[in-house]
């Protein structure tokens, strides 16, 4: 039986892992590029989920597979590879902070030996993958959960950043479900790749926006 309920638990934004404080680059992008409607949000989400979201999903799938195989060495190779795929130090720092928070939560709510083998500052996709494995979820599940968070985080933030109709925002999320499923399959296909062959899709404007955001004196979200 597929542990579907565990997947929902892991993907739930209410998991107390601090995700609510982040807009995934939406807050700075909205201001820098003058985004102001749900269509602009949807365009942002699609761009994010097919680039950095897809990379994160593939790494989560790879981490999940490595954790299932008990391949600790391979788990440890993923973080340096992720660093190389995140030029912005702000993006790297956020990914590691979210990873640390997630590791803290999963360690408390569902202790598992594989979690103890992770670097306490491991990137979020690495922790996500290992956490998924600890619930006996598949690499594709791990990828899907990460993709889900990639769009739901900025979407909830967008309602606070812009004056958007929450129904329109969720319509966009509903339209993206098919894309998410498709990306999850593609991401999971990389689960056993050599670490240096894992996806590296760039999102140059997100990187630049992240540094703009760090420099602001006043911001609603931490990223």
């Amino acid at each position: 039986m597929t542990p579907n309920a565990a997947l929902l638990l892991l993907a739930d934004g209410r998991l107390p892992a601090g995700g609510y404080a982040h807009s995934g680059g939406f807050e700075p992008t909205a201001r820098l590029q003058g985004l102001n409607d749900a269509a602009a949000l949807e365009d942002f989400l699609e761009g994010r989920v097919t680039t950095s979201g897809f990379v994160a999903a593939a790494f989560a799938a790879a981490a999940c597979a490595a954790a299932h195989a008990g391949n600790i060495g391979r788990l440890g190779q993923l973080d340096p590879e992720l660093d190389a795929r995140m030029p912005s130090p702000a993006v790297r720092a956020v990914s590691r902070a979210l990873g640390r928070q997630l590791l803290r939560v999963i360690t408390r709510i569902h202790p598992h030996p594989v979690l103890a083998t992770l670097d306490p500052h491991a990137h979020q996709p690495t922790v996500f993958g290992a956490a998924a494995a600890s619930f006996d979820l598949s690499p594709q599940d791990a990828a899907l959960a990460v993709l889900h968070e990639t769009i739901t985080g900025p979407a909830s933030a967008a309602v606070k950043v812009l004056s958007l109709d929450p129904y329109e925002v969720h319509s966009a999320l509903a339209r993206l479900t098919g894309l998410l499923d498709e990306l999850a399959v593609r991401a999971a296909a990389h689960a056993l790749d050599d670490p240096d062959q894992l996806p590296a899709d760039a999102s140059p404007l997100l990187d630049i926006a992240a540094e703009h955001h760090r420099s602001w004196d006043v911001r609603l979200f931490a990223s």
Partner: peptide, 20 residues
């Protein structure tokens, strides 16, 4: 600690950032 416009969440339902 930056709370993403949710200060009540940060001290109540999701304390992880503050705890760390």
């Amino acid at each position: 600690v930056e709370t993403g416009a949710c200060p009540h969440t940060a001290i109540r339902d999701d304390v992880t950032m503050n705890l760390l």
